[in-house]
Amino acid sequence: MKDEAYQTLRRWIIAGELAPGTKLRDQDLSVTLGISRTPIREALLMLENDGLVETKANRWTLVSSIDLNKAEETYAIVSTLECLAMELAFTSFSDNDIRELENLNENLNVSMQNGDRKSALEIDYAFHGTIIRMSRNEELQKLLVSLKLKIRRIESHYFSQKEFLQPSYAEHNQIINSIRNKDLQKAKESLKANWKNTLDRLREKQI
């Protein structure tokens, strides 16, 4: 029950259904989720460890605010680690793997055209997740899962369809073409540019 509560609350926070600053009362959540208060409290502790909630002992628990300054630090780390994943994965990419990336990117485009922002974001994460999975490095994957929780929340909160996802479609195509052409340096440059451009779009949202 603890894990189910954790997964549900984490999903709501990342999607923005629980907005920054929202008070989280274990009694209310117990009623909403239909489980006892003990697993709710345990789930909230796990979310606090993720940096998604803040707690003042015996006073309140809130959904954490989004710190845009820390976001820049997180993007820099994720970009570097994904480039490492690309290096580790590069010789393993098969024609089927490339087709998988192409299909994901085309599905991203379809979701954008249909105005399905939530689906498009999920597909974008799946695209990058495929590269990470291909690295076959479990420790690297664990690090990126933790860091990307924060990024997913930021992007869900700040980016609209046009501002974020449409440029990513073209940037993903550059990554795919570099992999197909067996050009590791270009693939890493394209991947790094995708993250840099995403961060630039985030900065524009702050102006």
Rank of each mutant, 00 (worst) to 15 (best):
I132L: 14
K150F: 11
I176Q: 11
N96F: 04
I13F: 13
A120D: 06
E73F: 15
F93L: 02
T61G: 05
K182M: 07
A193D: 03
T61L: 02
L88I: 11
F93S: 05
N173W: 06
Q161T: 14
A187I: 08
E54M: 08
G21H: 14
R37N: 03
K186T: 10
T91A: 13
E106S: 12
A187V: 06
D200M: 15
N114D: 11
W195C: 13
K148V: 00
L140Y: 04
P167E: 05
N177Q: 14
F90M: 11
K162T: 07
A85G: 08
V78N: 10
P167F: 03
V53W: 07
D116P: 11
N69K: 13
P39N: 03
Q27L: 14
I179T: 02
D200T: 15
S190M: 15
S111H: 07
I176T: 09
E100R: 09
N181S: 15
A15L: 10
S36F: 09
H157V: 03
D124M: 05
K186S: 11
S30E: 04
I98W: 03
N69A: 10
I123A: 02
T198W: 12
Q7L: 10
K205N: 05
K118L: 07
L140N: 00
E87D: 01
M46H: 11
L101I: 13
R153P: 03
H128E: 01
S190G: 12
D124L: 04
V31S: 11
D95S: 13
T55D: 02
S79Q: 15
E102S: 00
K118C: 04
W60V: 08
W12C: 02
R41G: 00
I123T: 14
D183F: 06
V78R: 14
A120L: 11
Q113P: 03
D116C: 05
N109T: 09
T91S: 15
N109Q: 13
I77D: 11
R203T: 13
E204F: 15
E139V: 07
N49G: 10
R136Y: 10
K186C: 05
K70G: 04
G16N: 04
L84Q: 12
L147R: 02
S135F: 07
F127P: 05
A85F: 09
I179F: 00
R153N: 02
L88T: 12
A57E: 01
F159M: 01
Q113G: 06
E189R: 15
L202K: 12
H128W: 00
K56Q: 08
I132T: 05
K70S: 01
T61C: 13
R117K: 15
L29K: 08
F127M: 10
S64Q: 02
A5N: 08
S94T: 07
R201F: 05
W60R: 09
A85R: 07
E100N: 08
L29W: 13
I66F: 07
K70L: 03
D3P: 02
L140C: 02
E48P: 04
L68Q: 02
A126R: 11
L68K: 02
E138P: 05
N96H: 08
H157R: 05
A19I: 07
